[in-house]
Amino acid sequence: MKISTLGRHVREGIKSVFRNGWMSFASISVIAISLFILGAFVILTLNVNHLSKTVEEQVEISVYLDVVESEEQINVIQTEIATIPEVSSITFVPKDEGLETLSEGMGELDLTEYFGESNPLPDKFTLKANKPENVDIVVSKVEAINDKFEMMPIEQVDYGKKTVEQLLAFTSGIRTVSIAIVAGLAFTAMFFISNTIKLTIISRNREISIMKLVGATNGFIRWPFFIEGFMLGLIGSIIPTGVLLYGYWKLIDFEESTVFGVTQWEYLPLNQLTFQLIFLLCSIGIIIGVWGSIISMRKFLRV
């Protein structure tokens, strides 16, 4: 195909987008909405992955002891833990210190109003594993210490990774739901696009029949419709990409500028997801658009 011909196809395709005003608008909106949902989910997933990586690197294992443990037993347990080769450090946090940290975190709130003079917190050890991937081993070995005593002195072993795992499970739930929504919307978008292009085909029926009569090739006749679908998909994906990136940038900006951020997350920097997001949303949008036009051409354009 010649460059000038391609230019013609592009002009024709873009003209139709405007000529079919409301239908184009509807198609673009449906694509934009579905891609917005998809994009928002992608941003969330990337951030959760980012978060889990950061957490894993600095993971701390908290070993909560049963409230009644005596100082002697605490020492015994500490020695037990120290024999685990994967543990790189042990810090004992007595319950008073734990309460102090807690009330600092609560700010103005006076905890003694709730607890009186008693301290409901357990003593705990804070451990660090020598490598992030050894955290699981350390946890199971610490839990195994319980079996050596009748009293089962260790109440609970908790570590940041658990929270992250819960978060991941939660997001995978969202993933299923949002994929279903996006698939449904993508289908609707395709339907809208194929209808928009059907309108173009009908309105240009006469033109097409003359083109066929004078010997235009099928490719020549089809191209403008491809371009039209392509344009609908492209515009429909540029809008949500722009909105999401701007929104994310503003969110990071807000979270970093204030101490009272909604979350204490460390956000994935904008530049690390910009290209992924643009590439993903635009290519899906374009595929939906072109697909819609192909459906329509099969049905209504007998060339």
């Binding site: 195909m1 033109e207 083109m211 004078v214 010997g215």
Partner: peptide
């Protein structure tokens, strides 16, 4: 070349464009 009773010209474009269109269609 095909000629019809009802001419079948494209109504919104000029006579020149109606004719040149047939050449553009075959590139």
């Amino acid at each position: 070349g095909v000629v019809f009773q009802d001419f079948r010209l494209l109504p919104k474009i000029s006579i020149y464009e109606n004719v040149s269109f047939a050449m553009e269609a075959i590139e």
